[in-house]
Write a protein that binds this DNA or RNA. Structure first.
Lengths: 194, 194
DNA sequence: AGTTAAGTACACCGATCGGTACCAGTTGGC
DNA sequence: GCCAACTGGTACCGATCGGTGTACTTAACT
């Protein structure tokens, strides 16, 4: 899903400039931020002429929006579908994030763009809402007394850990996971464990 | 402390251009972000000539650093010193943040600047560390079993709520406060309340 | 082969970026 | 009153920003 996607038009003939552009966007936006990445540099990395870039994305904002839209299926990938884990284990597995993981691109974009009306900001809200919904759903499976509340709480923990990892350069997900464990055990009537 | 400060040199004569510049920085950096605020606009708002601005701050980065340094005594102001509250109440009071409060400027700067070596990023780390330390200290007063852990946890909750308030446009501090209450009661051997 | 669309190379646009030079006015401490 | 720091106005610098125009090449499918 991260690759190809064939673009909107039915048939394509050239050799995927669009994919190279989006791929370069991921790399550069992640490493340098959005506003510090110019279209010239982006096109150079993507090995695409500027003209071509602007034929695929009529504006940089449009490219940014598409760059974010792409993440939807990718992030938090298999965690919620791992049937080998109990719902409770799945909730905790959401906090096992490798140290190298950069700050959530949606947070990064929302802060950088600084405009709630920007389509990218809307995607960010959608994404955050979706994550909270999946956590809520899993919390319900786990038998939580108030799944909506637990889902929202866990989502807040993930974002807090993500931003502190970036700002402080120190591992914060273990801290968040510890909190999560407490909340989960508190929310499930008969703690089914240990 | 937010005002005047007389600058580094011994005596000053003119009428505070420096303060107007820093005041305009707070306003503009908060409302538009750092990178989206140009020096021209900043000088216009501060009603200061560009020449003067660059006599006080030899570089924009230097201004940004000073802008952040200024917050140290301001943010999280009286909460930790309110002797009318029990330590436990003080910990919870840290989550009573008005809805209008913008995203923590240190987080905003760290994300925007995207450079851990930037002096502003260093200030951000210092500030976050200081907040965690004060929370830890108060947690110790409250009799928490593991004050360091509780302090770090509460700091994470605050940042999570701050960033979600910004990204989602929805009040997240009540959610964080609810988590905090659970953590605090869990951490204090004999819950002294209700 | 020939049509057609995708991609390329490169010069160029106005706007804005951070930052400076120069010159004139103002203010305060001595 | 004098000197020096402080302030302002304004034009300007090179670089980069996002974005375009034009003419050319390449590749895919019929």
């Amino acid at each position: 899903m991260t690759e190809l996607e064939k673009g909107p038009m039915g048939r394509r003939r050239g050799r995927g400039a669009r994919e190279r552009i989006l791929s370069a966007s991921q790399e550069l936006f992640r490493d340098q931020g959005i506003s510090r990445t110019g279209m010239d540099q982006l096109c150079a990395v993507a090995q695409v002429s500027k003209r071509t870039a602007y034929q695929h994305f009529s504006t940089k904002d449009e490219l940014v929006a598409e760059y974010l839209r792409r993440f939807d299926p990718d992030v938090m990938p298999g965690v919620f579908d791992r049937t080998d884990l109990t719902p409770r284990e799945r909730l905790l597995a959401a906090f096992e994030i490798p140290a190298s993981t950069p700050l959530c691109p949606y947070i990064s974009a929302a802060v950088e763009l600084h405009d709630p009306e920007h389509p990218a900001s809307q995607y960010a809200r959608d994404y955050k809402t979706a994550i909270a919904a999946r956590l809520t759903e899993t919390a319900r499976e786990a038998g939580a007394a108030n799944p909506e509340q637990l889902g929202e709480q866990l989502a807040l923990l993930i974002d807090g850990a993500s931003v502190r990892t970036r700002v402080l350069n120190s591992e914060s997900f273990p801290t968040a996971a510890a909190i999560a464990a407490v909340l989960i055990d508190n929310a499930i009537p008969a703690a089914p464990e240990s």
